[in-house]
Amino acid sequence: MDHDNDLVAAVTVDSAESALFLRFASASNVDDTLFEQIDADIARLAGDYVSKPVSELFHDIGTLRRGVFDLLRGRQHPFQTSHLYLQAGRLCGLATHVALDLGQYKAASTHSRTAWRCAESAGHNGLRAWIRSVQSLIAYWQQDHRQAAELARAGLPYADGGTIAARLLSLEARATAALGDSASALRAVEAAEAERGTVAAMDFPGVFTFPEAKQWTYAGTALLALGGHRHVNRAIEASSRAIALYESAPQQEQSSGDLLAARLDLANAHLAHDDLDAVREKLSVVLNAAPDRRTASISTRLRALSTRLAEPAYAGSPVVLSLRENVREACSRPALTNSPEPPQ
């Protein structure tokens, strides 16, 4: 099997056809209008992914992804192939994010490898760098922090503009902080801030860009992991800034996942300062969030907080006991955990 057909074979068309897929299936070849429509559809899905529940998006992502791979079965002119691979790579990247948010790390890894091969075929450094950032995320949430740091660093040589360097450095900071490497973490936080000041080129929209609010969310997590009074105070400042920036942004740019993550980091930071009223305030928003807003990473953070609240140091506190029960109850609620779009 040649390289192109090998990639196409990674995606099998099922019977769940939609009007969008039928449009692809009836196309005899690729023209400029179809290219423009695919790009617009990917941009829309990437933008919607920031603020809409995953459950509202994965069907359209899967449908469009299958359609693009179907076009790669030889319906394109040779000069169009690299752009189709770029489109396929971005859609596989979105599929990776779906699986990641659902906690399906094996499926996420599979999608990311297909996305990488598409980026290689397209010769697109920006997509290469972005895929390494998502692979770093997969490793991080599998608790392989060393691999997460290495993957973030591996993406930097491909960072050729936009916000991707700041994203990769922020991921490196968070991973090295989890390893207890304070020097590397602080250096990466500072380098990410420096990169933010040099951003000029535009990114592809939605989840393919790295807004300043998200950067402060990651910085807050990294600083909190380092511990110590000074770092915890800096974490409070970073997470608070992330929330303020997101809440002042247009609704469609407000990442519900990052807002919940920042509030959970603030709850943990205030717990370190024994400010239980502040802990309860920050947790209230998280505990009342709809299940379809609670990604796998938020559930992981909640379980970690539940474990922390059960530590002997808080055994005599009725406030902490109440908080622990509330967190346990939230963790027991059903959440969206299965995707109808597994890798083939």
Rank of each mutant, 00 (worst) to 15 (best):
Q344C: 14
T63D: 12
V279G: 04
A201N: 08
V50L: 08
S317Q: 06
A88T: 02
P53I: 14
D274A: 15
A27P: 02
A43K: 12
T176G: 00
G67N: 06
D258K: 00
G180R: 12
G93A: 13
A238I: 06
S18F: 07
V279Y: 02
T176L: 03
R241M: 10
P342G: 09
S182N: 07
W216I: 06
D41C: 09
Q254D: 00
V232L: 01
N268K: 11
N288R: 09
A173Y: 05
K214N: 09
N233S: 13
D48F: 10
N326S: 12
A129Y: 08
G62C: 01
G103W: 07
D203E: 10
A188K: 10
A315H: 09
A194P: 00
L7H: 06
D14Y: 05
A178L: 09
D60V: 03
F208V: 05
G161S: 06
I298G: 03
I38D: 13
D274H: 15
A19E: 09
N338L: 15
Q147E: 09
P157K: 06
F69I: 01
L323M: 14
L71A: 04
P211Y: 09
L226W: 03
A272F: 00
A249I: 05
A46L: 08
R117E: 10
L168P: 04
V199W: 02
A185I: 00
G89D: 03
A166L: 02
P157T: 04
L186H: 03
L321F: 06
A108P: 00
E329S: 13
R117P: 01
A25Y: 08
S240I: 06
I42H: 11
S184E: 09
